[in-house]
Simulated scan of single mutants.
Amino acid sequence: MITEDSEFLKGVKEDDNSSFKAIYEKYSRDLFVYAYNIIKEKTVCEDIIQEVFISLWAKRKTTTITSLKPYLFQAVKFQIFNHFRNNKFSREDLTRLNIIDVSMNVSQKLEYSELDQIIRDHVAKLPKRCRHIFVLSRYHHKSNKEIADELEISVQAVKNQISKALAFLRNNLQLEEVAFISLILLQ
């Protein structure tokens, strides 16, 4: 089955401006809201979203994207990290953001991989339904409404399960682990 996003991506690779515009119109607002929930500065967030779409267009011939929405959210995460890396921020900000540098050296990448595995191990300990909802939210970047519709439950039930998962993870991860996890605990 060919998805709308894959058709848009095909068009972008073929220099179709209308496909690019369709992707922008479909995702820019959600990406902006996501960035704004972290940074809280409108102009910075607008710049980040603009940079993500400029990069998407510039790399259209050389980048293979299998899933557009996760790709775009990951690109925003990277730009957010760059923003904070290039500006001074406190340990409290780091803990609140739960961010890592995706352009780190090999030893840091190994450390991140270990931390990521610790988090995934803790996520695996969540009750099945809670884990499923958390994974849809944090790893597949689905909105609470999308999850509720998909699982045929209320939005409030989704929120409750995500809160339960976050509380479990916060209570079971060491402070230094929490300080470096990659945006999955971000509310």
Rank of each mutant, 00 (worst) to 15 (best):
M1K: 13
E4W: 03
D5M: 04
S6T: 15
L9E: 01
K10M: 07
K10Q: 10
G11N: 04
E14W: 07
E14L: 15
E14D: 09
D15M: 11
D16Q: 09
N17R: 10
S19V: 05
S19G: 03
A22Y: 00
E25I: 09
K26T: 15
S28G: 08
L31F: 04
V33E: 10
A35W: 03
E41Y: 07
E41P: 03
V44N: 03
V44K: 12
C45F: 08
E46M: 13
Q50V: 10
E51K: 15
E51Q: 13
V52N: 06
L56S: 06
W57H: 09
W57R: 11
K59R: 14
K61M: 13
L68N: 07
Y71R: 07
Q74Y: 14
R85Q: 12
R85G: 05
R85N: 11
N86W: 12
S90K: 01
D93A: 08
L94Y: 09
R96P: 05
R96C: 15
R96W: 15
S103W: 09
N105M: 11
N105I: 07
S107V: 02
S107Y: 08
Q108I: 02
K109E: 11
K109T: 03
L110W: 07
E114V: 11
E114R: 01
L115I: 10
Q117Y: 09
I118N: 00
D121Y: 04
A124D: 02
L126Y: 00
K128S: 04
R131C: 00
L136N: 00
S137Y: 15
S137V: 04
R138E: 08
R138H: 10
H140A: 04
H140F: 09
N144E: 06
I147N: 00
D149L: 14
L151F: 14
I153N: 05
I153A: 07
S154M: 13
V158H: 00
S163F: 09
K164I: 02
A165I: 00
R170Y: 14
Q174W: 10
Q174A: 10
Q174R: 14
L175Q: 12
E176S: 12
A179L: 12
I181T: 14
Q187V: 11
